[in-house]
């Protein structure tokens, strides 16, 4: 039987209350939402917090997908099932639905949340790459107020984020810019598995030129891979298959996969390249309002 080590459990009644509890426990407490990353980690003793602070009652504060001030704002407690079904996201950032269709399975998606996925910061997790590609910013709240950080600054290391012991991720903000197109491609061994490799791409096309681009990879390194070199190549260029092939070449060079049961290194580099090319091609086609 797999059971977590003993801990104390409490339910938060507000975000500020959850932060106060984190502060009071001084580094020994963890936030639990869907629990589909944390509970398995606790069963395996990879995490043994002494206190769990359950934020599932905070849907009124933390579960929403809304358009405001030129951004899409997603509350941290928004569940995968709601990201998958969101018309607002489908219209502006269809890569969310691409990814959500292949994240775990529908029953897990009923519980897991975007905040939990991002804070788990598992390199194989899809939403971290999705948020990196669309240049999301995340809002982190602590007792002294809020700060907003980019995904580059959010990802600190394997399973490590910029969220401090006494802070909570409250919101994900996606910029709304014209000419956006985006896509996520993933290869997995079987339905619901972690990726062997996955790529997220976003392009913003203005007047036939890529004004800006975001590309990120899952599962081919110890952290989510931000492909800065590919983004630089794409910026200012006209979208073309040759260009995307060059960006895909960078993906295979700039990732750092390990050999494991999911495949050897050369295969994963190859997949990173293929997934990147496909994601860019579809993102570009969507930006040009033509489904690939």
């Amino acid at each position: 039987m797999q059971t977590p080590a003993p801990f104390q459990y409490e339910r938060a009644t507000s975000v500020d209350g959850a932060i106060a509890a984190l502060v009071a426990h001084d580094g020994d407490a963890r936030i639990i939402a869907g629990g589909h990353s944390l509970i398995p980690m606790m069963k395996l003793r990879l995490a043994s917090p002494e206190h769990l602070i359950d934020i599932n009652d905070l849907e009124h504060e933390l579960a929403y997908i809304a358009e405001r001030d030129g951004e899409i704002r997603i509350g941290a407690l928004t569940r995968h099932v709601d990201l998958l079904g969101s018309d607002l996201l489908a219209r502006h950032y269809p890569l969310f639905a691409d990814a959500e269709e292949v994240i775990a399975d529908p029953v897990v998606r009923n519980r897991g949340t975007i905040g939990g996925s991002l804070c788990q910061a598992d390199a194989a997790e899809d939403l971290s790459a999705v948020c990196a590609a669309v240049k999301a910013r995340v809002v982190i709240r602590g007792r002294d107020g809020e700060r907003t950080v980019s995904m580059e600054d959010f990802h600190v290391g394997p399973y490590q984020t910029a969220v401090g012991d006494d802070e909570i991720l409250t919101e994900v903000r996606l910029p709304l810019r014209s000419g956006a197109g985006s896509a996520h491609f993933k290869t997995e061994r079987r339905a619901g598995d972690w990726a062997i490799a996955a790529a997220s791409a976003a392009v913003w096309i203005e007047g036939g030129t890529i004004a800006d681009a975001g590309v990120a990879l899952s599962a081919v390194g110890t952290t989510t891979i931000h492909l800065a070199r590919a983004e630089e190549l794409l910026r200012g260029a006209a979208p073309s298959d040759e260009l995307f092939a060059q960006a895909a070449q960078i993906a295979s060079e700039d990732c750092s996969p390990s050999a494991d049961a999911r495949g050897p290194v050369d295969y994963k580099r190859h997949l990173a390249s293929v997934m990147t090319r496909r994601a860019l091609r579809r993102a570009s086609a969507r930006a040009l309002a033509m489904e690939a």
């Binding site: 589909h36 509970i39 599932n56 897990v108 009923n110 519980r111």
Partner: peptide, 13 residues
């Protein structure tokens, strides 16, 4: 009414 996996949910939740 929503299906969930009871092996990955605490009773207290």
């Amino acid at each position: 009414g929503t299906p969930i996996k009871s092996c990955t949910t605490l009773a207290a939740m």
